[in-house]
Write a protein that binds this DNA or RNA. Sequence first.
DNA 1: ACCGGACGTTGACAGTGTCAACATAGCAAG
DNA 2: CTTGCTATGTTGACACTGTCAACGTCCGGT
Lengths: 200, 200
Amino acid sequence: MSNPGKDQAHAEGLRDVLIAEAMRILETDGLEALSLRAVARAAKVSHAAPYRHFADKDALLAAVSARGFLALAAAMEAAAAGIDDPFRRRSRIGIAYVRYALDHPARYRLMFGPTIPGKRRFPELVEAGERSFQRCRQMMADVAGPAERADEALIERRAIAIWSLVHGLASLLIDDTVALPGPDDLAIDERISAVLKIAP
Amino acid sequence: MSNPGKDQAHAEGLRDVLIAEAMRILETDGLEALSLRAVARAAKVSHAAPYRHFADKDALLAAVSARGFLALAAAMEAAAAGIDDPFRRRSRIGIAYVRYALDHPARYRLMFGPTIPGKRRFPELVEAGERSFQRCRQMMADVAGPAERADEALIERRAIAIWSLVHGLASLLIDDTVALPGPDDLAIDERISAVLKIAP
DNA sequence: ACCGGACGTTGACAGTGTCAACATAGCAAG
DNA sequence: CTTGCTATGTTGACACTGTCAACGTCCGGT
């Protein structure tokens, strides 16, 4: 020991440092700036050091993506907290979802885009994604009538539909394919809501 | 002339050959195999030849993407042809849209994904995308009542909503984030329809 | 005391996007 | 016909990337 110059890298587990630096680069400079070597430089280790902790570049990206899904689930949960009416809750969650994408566009693109091929290979990522989707299913079950609630296939289809809607909107917005309509002085949440509430 | 060995490159305008080869590579080997040099090799020209016709790799990709949008608009148009009932037409168009994505996943990913940054820089691409969206607006105007039809903002929001739904579903499906529910022996179109018709 | 394994570094390799310098062919002007 | 310009294509280089093999180094268990 007695080596204080070893940076935080060795102190706090290089693996977590790499993930953290990758997320920082993602927020600051976007997806195209996120190279393995850039991450290594940011963590002040050599360019091949990440290979002791990740098999692949894809493995690192998958870890980042998984954290993104956990944060997304948390944001949805936070938006739902304290709201009793299930319809209001659904609305809040949808808005929070789109806002999350708008607030972290590069991260969201990584999570859903084609950057990581064969996402299925990474169990951590699959599980984190499943958690978000589970919250979505729950939300749709809550707004369903007591009779419908038993029909699992119906709830599943509705969950997919609402997720498609919300993900599609987020995706079109951050990839600059459409612009959010409505007067600029209106709060973003209101404008998101105006689009979402059309398909109930 | 009298030089028959010059391949089709010089004969039919290298620019179009490059775009065609790029689309072929995209269909066959996917997005990650689509490099500028691979396209040049496929067209049997040197690795820097594309720069006489495209400023950038992004410019080539934008041209490919634009063709993709035109083909998408054509597919939607074909699906609508001969259907008189506007609701049935909307349903057919939605199914055709998702099918297009499933049939050409790599192309679709390029069109909507983050691969081309700042799509707004390419007017050809913007215009081609706008044409697809225009068809979508038309479709929503057709199913609207006569009173609603005048409310442009309403139609716009509805068009965005339906596009979000359909694009979100397509996107989730081809990026392997969700699986299309329903029995396997049911035709794909039916299963797509079952999800889409939930949000009318 | 020794040794094995976990961790990190160095150096290399092929592949990529991009640019500058060079070649060439075809056409316009004199 | 000669001259020269422009459009197009080629060659060679540069920096950068993901990846791997070979090499250190240091710590914990036998």
